[in-house]
Amino acid sequence: MLTALDAHGYPVSVRVSTRGYDAATGELAAELPEGLGTAEGPANLLCHYHDDKLWHLDSTHVTGLLRRRGDNWVFVSEKFTPQTRFEMVSFLRGAHASAQRYLDRRGLARPAVNWAAVEGIRRGTTQRVKKS
């Protein structure tokens, strides 16, 4: 996820593919919709991975600059910040506690998840992808 600022200083985020990242120059070409009003300046890239069950989470935070090159945008990386396992565990514990506080303040129970339905959707999606 590439996040930058618009002309008014508000954040804008766009999902980008990192396949075109050039390690030699630290540059990543990015397609940004014109309607966002994105401005050149500081930007960051959050890359993450997890499996289908949201386990094995791994992420890297990259800071840099967003530059206009003619009609194209380029993210120029400056600093990589990989998260340690401790930070990931702390994040997950914090997210769990934060979600529980949200539910408690509203007098809500933790919602039940219909895992059979989720599994059915996953199987259907996987079958469609294999046929393509």
Rank of each mutant, 00 (worst) to 15 (best):
T3Q: 13
T3S: 09
L5E: 03
L5D: 01
G9A: 13
V12P: 09
V16N: 02
S17F: 08
R19H: 02
R19L: 12
G20Y: 12
A24Y: 01
E27H: 02
L28H: 02
L28V: 06
E31T: 15
E31Q: 13
L32I: 06
P33L: 09
E34M: 07
G37M: 05
A39D: 01
E40C: 00
G41F: 02
N44A: 04
L45N: 03
Y49N: 07
H50K: 09
H50G: 07
W55G: 10
D58T: 07
S59Y: 05
S59P: 02
L66W: 00
R67S: 00
R68P: 00
G70E: 01
K79V: 10
F80E: 14
P82G: 07
Q83G: 07
Q83P: 06
T84I: 04
M88W: 03
L92N: 06
L92E: 13
R93S: 15
A95S: 14
S98I: 01
S98G: 01
Q100S: 12
L103D: 13
L108P: 10
R110Q: 10
R110N: 12
V113P: 08
N114Q: 04
N114G: 08
A116I: 07
A116K: 15
A117D: 14
A117F: 02
I121S: 10
I121Y: 06
T126I: 09
R128D: 15
R128F: 05
K131N: 11
S132M: 14
